Computed example of a mutant assay.
Amino acid sequence: MPFDERYVVSSEKQVAAELEHALDRMRNRDRGTAPVMIDGQPCCAECEEPMPKRARLGYGRCIDCQSRHERTQGE
């Protein structure tokens, strides 16, 4: 196999490994607790603000509360 082909194959394998690693991080990310239902509407488990779109994606916290949670987890 010529050097150029080995480089391309190696690069493709590296890209595939990096992609798989990124997908694993996304799959294992803490989405928080389940949303709280208030008046039949899914709301953030912490601040209780309505968040129907994020709840459909499986998140239990709004963006602000999730960001604050992730920052405090690293400490």
Rank of each mutant, 00 (worst) to 15 (best):
P2M: 01
F3A: 13
D4K: 14
E5L: 14
E5V: 10
R6C: 02
R6F: 03
Y7G: 02
Y7F: 08
V8W: 11
V9N: 08
S10E: 08
S10N: 14
E12F: 10
E12N: 11
Q14V: 12
A17Y: 11
E20L: 04
E20T: 14
E20N: 05
E20P: 07
A22E: 11
A22Y: 01
L23W: 05
D24I: 02
R25T: 10
M26R: 01
R27E: 13
N28T: 07
R29E: 15
R29L: 15
R31M: 08
R31I: 12
R31W: 06
R31F: 05
G32H: 08
G32D: 04
T33Y: 04
A34I: 04
A34N: 09
V36E: 13
V36C: 09
M37W: 02
M37F: 03
I38S: 04
D39N: 15
D39V: 13
D39Y: 01
G40A: 08
G40D: 00
G40H: 02
G40V: 02
G40P: 03
P42V: 12
P42D: 02
C43V: 07
C44L: 08
E46M: 10
E48M: 09
P50G: 05
M51Y: 14
P52M: 12
A55P: 12
L57Y: 03
G58N: 09
R61A: 03
R61T: 08
R61W: 14
R61K: 13
R61M: 08
D64T: 00
C65I: 01
C65T: 04
C65W: 11
Q66H: 09
S67D: 05
S67V: 11
S67E: 06
R68K: 08
R68E: 00
E70W: 12
T72K: 02
T72E: 13
Q73H: 10
